[in-house]
Nucleic acid binder design. Structure first.
Lengths: 279, 279
DNA sequence: CGTGATCTTGAAGGGGGTCAACTGGAGTGG
DNA sequence: CCACTCCAGTTGACCCCCTTCAAGATCACG
């Protein structure tokens, strides 16, 4: 809760600055993108001179629709998005969740049309890099090319993670992998890897995992019963990271039993999907 | 069969050329990458002066291992690769299949380590763009940036397709979507969209679809029984593209029945996963 | 022709999809 | 404040589809 308030303050502040100073490059610039992505903008003095539109969105707002013409790449400054495709019958397949420093809309570059939509799950802000100017910008600010490439690469690797998640047969294992993924992600952002604030509904999780939303509920309950996590609405606390990780690693029903990869687990290692109390 | 022989001749020929002429830029250059990706290299005269390593691989050869340090991006000239991750228990999760003009190894850019492996499914050849030189090359040949971006974007969109494929509950629907995907892909390459030569094993398909390989066999049989396709080993002929497409669109077990999106199908439209003979 | 890998088919059993009912919280308006 | 609605989430029951195990068929290769 404090976190989102902090974020709100930040964005309001930024907006204030932007409005206070006049048109001339007072708002966001390419330099903000560089520093967001961990590149020192001082090495690219030009960057601060190129203004960039910042968009702020409320929960439920759409950043871009599926099938719409692509006009920009978006770097997420704050908040969480879901990217998804909608089938003819209205079923929403969630493709990705994007948070701070993640890139959105890159998959539209190829065809010029967004193959997926993106909507905000909470108050969000993004920096928009216009596609028209992309080539020019890259020429003008060489570091931008690397930044875009790395962000796109991360997005791609993230899809690989998702495939690995869906590869698990057992629903509880999928959920465990989902939680491990988010735990690592939160840790990478300097937040606690044990206490997760999920921004998305069970239905969105279900879509992302490729199971029914009732099954997600049941899987949460199962993990709670096993003593691996504690759940309060969308707030998840990982009680035993080791055991959860071990459980998330179990793949097919009947593993070769062979090498257990020597996990020095404190828990009695519930290796295969036989969810037992942790202790 | 004729196809692979043709490819063989091509690559041998190329290799011959490469060996014949001497060190000095005689082999492949960045210009080859540009023309492969549909950009006229004449606009970038510099490109022809930058030599590029070409690698040739036999079926089963590994382009790069999972966990190895990334040294280059690879543009596929010919042949088919599979990209996959290996779990502790040896289960191979196939992430992607890459053919001509596809980009491999891009997901390693972010961390510098390959999160997935790539092995050749047949005789293949690739152009390797060294990561060390990437920034310099982009600066020197601005068009290269766009080419890499577009290829990466396509790879990302391809993962989205895969997610959509795995989103289908019924195994036969997944297989139908898989075939539709390949049909479109082959058509985009100027080949017949009705006759597919699958390069991968049933096991690889199963991994990609997220089902057991026996289920893939059964699903093939079911689609054959329904008269939608004809199968001979790894050779698939699509008999009724319309019906297959309609069937591939069916999502959850009990669709809303609502709008059928008005498909002017010649076949009696087996809308939901009730696989009936097509005629 | 034998050997092993790939592919197919059968049988059995269980996991999860589907449907349904209930809970609880948020928002609305009396 | 309560009645009402709506939606998110949870839990139960039923049953089909897919996983698993097993065996046979077919193909590739030496």
């Amino acid at each position: 809760m404090e976190l989102s308030i902090a974020r709100l303050d930040f964005t309001v502040q930024t907006r204030g600055r932007r409005r206070a100073r006049a048109p001339q490059g007072a708002g966001s610039t390419v330099a903000d993108v560089l520093s967001l992505m961990g590149v020192d903008p001082c090495n690219e003095p030009q960057a601060a001179c190129v203004p960039l539109a910042m968009r702020r969105l409320q929960a439920g707002d759409t950043l871009f629709h599926e099938g719409s013409r692509a006009t920009a790449l978006y770097f997420v400054l704050a908040g969480m998005f879901k990217a998804f495709r909608t089938a003819q019958d209205g079923y929403e397949q969630v493709i990705d969740f994007a948070g701070r420093a993640d890139l959105l809309g890159f998959d539209a570059l190829y065809t010029g049309v967004h193959p997926s939509a993106a909507v905000a799950l909470e108050i969000c802000s993004v920096l928009a890099v216009p596609l028209r100017d992309l080539d020019g910008l890259v020429r003008q600010i060489p570091a931008l090319s690397g930044v875009v490439n790395r962000a796109a690469s991360q997005a791609l690797a993230c899809r690989d993670d998702m495939a690995e998640m869906m590869a698990a047969v057992a629903a509880e294992v999928r959920l465990a992998r989902f939680l491990m993924l988010w735990s690592r992600r939160m840790e990478a952002q300097g937040q606690s890897p044990r206490r997760l604030r999920l921004r998305m509904s069970r239905r969105d999780i279900a879509s992302n995992l490729g199971v029914a939303h009732e099954t997600v509920s049941r899987s949460f309950s199962a993990l709670v019963q096993a003593g691996l996590i504690r759940v309060e609405n969308r707030e998840v606390e990982i009680l035993c990271a080791q055991a959860l990780a071990t459980f998330a690693r179990s793949t097919r029903r009947h593993p070769d039993d062979a090498e257990d990869a020597g996990s020095p687990a404190p828990a009695p290692s519930p290796a295969r999907p036989a969810l037992r109390r942790v202790a």
